[in-house]
C-alpha cells in the first residue's frame, strides 16, 4: 500500500464525523433556504451574531440612553423619574467651558480637559515611541525575537498589575526614590505632584500599550519590498530621505490604523490610572471614564442618570473616532483596488 493512499484513508476516516455532521445540518438549512431564498441565507447566518450584538451592545446602549433621561439615586428604571434632558443640561451648565470651576459639574469638565490633553500627548508620544521601536526591531539585531518579546510583554499584563507595579516604583518609599537615594539624591513625592503624576500616567500607559502598536508597525515595515531600499542605497539616498520618501508613505495605512486605535484606547483610559493615582492629586489625573464610574457607582450618593449622560457623550466621541477609522479603512481598500 502506498503512503499516499494511507494518508488519504486516514484523512477520510478523520473527516467522516465532519461529513456526517454537515449532512445532518444540511437538512434544516435546505428547508430554511427554500423559505428564505439564497439571498435570505446571509441574514440567517448573521442572525446569531446580531442577536448577541443586540443583547450585549445595542440593548445596553438603549438602556443607558434611557437612564440618562432619568433622575434619582435608585438603580432600577422602574423606580427612577423621567427628567428629560436635565442631566445633559446639568453637564453643560457652565459659565466658561475652559474654566471647569465655573461649571456646575466641575469634575466632569476637569475630566474632559484632562482626557483631551492626555489623548493629544499620549497618542503623539505613543506613535513616536512605537515607530522608533518598530524601526529598531526591524533591523538585524542580535536576539531580535527576544527584544520583540520584551517590548510586547507589558501588553499581556493586566492593567491593575501595571498600575500596581508603577505605584511601587513611584510612591514616596518606592523603588525610584530608593535608587535616587543611593546616589545621594533626595527622595521626591512623584505621585503627589500634579505635573509629575500627569506625566506618569502618560508614561505608564505608553509602556503598557506600545507593544501592540509596535507589532502592527513592525508588520507594516516588513511588508515594504526590500528592493526599494536596495535601489535607494544604490542611488546613494540619505537614510532620512529614505525614511521620508519610502518608509513613511508605505507605512501610512498601518500608521493610520495605529493612530485611530491609540486614540480610542486613550479616550477610554481608566484602570491603570485608577490604581496608580486614584485620579489624584486632587483631580489632576481624573479622566472621563473614572468620572463616569465614580458618579455612577462610587460616590456617597450615586447618580446613575448623570453618569449615563456623561457616558453617552463619551460614546459619541468614540463613534466619531470609529467612523474615522472606517473611513480610513475604506480609503485604503479603494487605493489597494486601484
Amino acid at each position: 500500500m502506498s503512503t499516499t493512499s494511507l494518508t488519504d484513508r486516514l484523512g477520510s476516516l478523520l473527516m467522516a464525523p465532519v461529513h456526517l455532521l454537515m449532512r445532518i445540518i444540511d437538512i434544516p438549512l435546505r428547508a430554511v433556504q427554500k423559505t428564505t431564498g439564497i439571498g435570505g441565507m446571509a441574514a440567517v447566518f448573521l442572525a446569531p451574531n446580531m442577536l448577541i450584538f443586540g443583547i450585549f451592545v445595542l440593548l445596553p446602549l438603549v438602556i443607558n440612553f434611557v437612564y440618562s433621561m432619568t433622575g434619582g439615586t435608585a438603580f432600577f428604571l422602574s423606580e427612577r423619574q423621567f427628567v428629560g434632558t436635565d442631566q445633559y443640561a446639568r453637564l453643560f451648565q457652565c459659565a466658561n467651558y475652559l474654566d471647569p470651576m465655573s461649571c456646575q459639574e466641575d469634575a466632569f469638565w476637569t475630566a474632559v480637559g484632562n482626557t483631551f490633553w492626555f489623548v493629544i500627548l499620549q497618542v503623539a508620544l505613543m506613535i513616536g515611541v512605537s515607530l522608533i521601536t518598530a524601526l529598531i526591531l526591524n533591523r538585524d539585531l542580535a536576539a531580535r525575537s527576544f527584544w520583540r518579546a520584551v517590548f510586547f510583554f507589558p501588553v499581556l499584563l493586566s492593567p491593575v498589575v501595571v498600575g500596581l507595579i508603577w505605584k511601587w516604583i513611584l510612591q514616596r518609599q518606592g523603588l525610584l526614590n530608593f535608587g535616587l537615594y543611593q546616589f545621594g539624591i533626595e527622595p521626591y513625592t512623584w505621585l503627589t505632584d500634579r505635573n509629575w503624576t500627569f506625566i506618569a500616567t502618560i508614561g505608564v500607559s505608553i509602556w503598557a500599550h506600545m507593544g501592540l502598536y509596535t507589532l502592527i508597525l513592525l508588520a507594516g515595515l516588513q511588508a515594504i519590498p526590500k528592493d526599494l531600499y536596495e535601489a535607494a542605497e544604490m542611488d546613494g539616498t540619505k537614510p532620512a530621505r529614505v525614511f521620508r520618501r519610502i518608509t513613511l508613505p508605505l507605512l501610512m495605512p498601518n500608521l493610520l490604523v495605529v493612530v485611530v486605535l491609540a486614540l480610542i484606547k486613550a479616550v477610554q483610559i481608566f484602570d491603570e490610572v485608577f490604581v496608580l493615582t486614584g485620579g489624584g492629586p486632587g483631580t489632576s489625573t481624573l479622566y472621563l471614564t473614572q468620572y463616569i464610574y465614580e458618579t455612577g457607582f462610587a460616590s456617597a450618593l450615586r447618580n446613575p442618570g448623570l453618569a449615563a449622560a456623561a457616558s453617552i457623550l463619551m460614546g459619541l466621541v468614540l463613534v466619531v473616532l470609529t467612523l474615522v477609522q472606517l473611513g480610513i479603512g475604506q480609503r485604503s481598500e479603494k487605493k489597494g483596488k486601484r
Binding site: T189, T192, T277, G278, G279, G280, T283, L286, Q290, A298
Partner: peptide, 14 residues
C-alpha cells in the same frame, strides 16, 4: 502628611 490626602480624587478612602 499631604500624600494621603492628595493621592486620590473624589471621596476615596486612604
Amino acid at each position: 502628611a499631604k500624600d494621603v490626602w492628595v493621592s486620590a480624587a473624589g471621596s476615596t478612602y486612604r
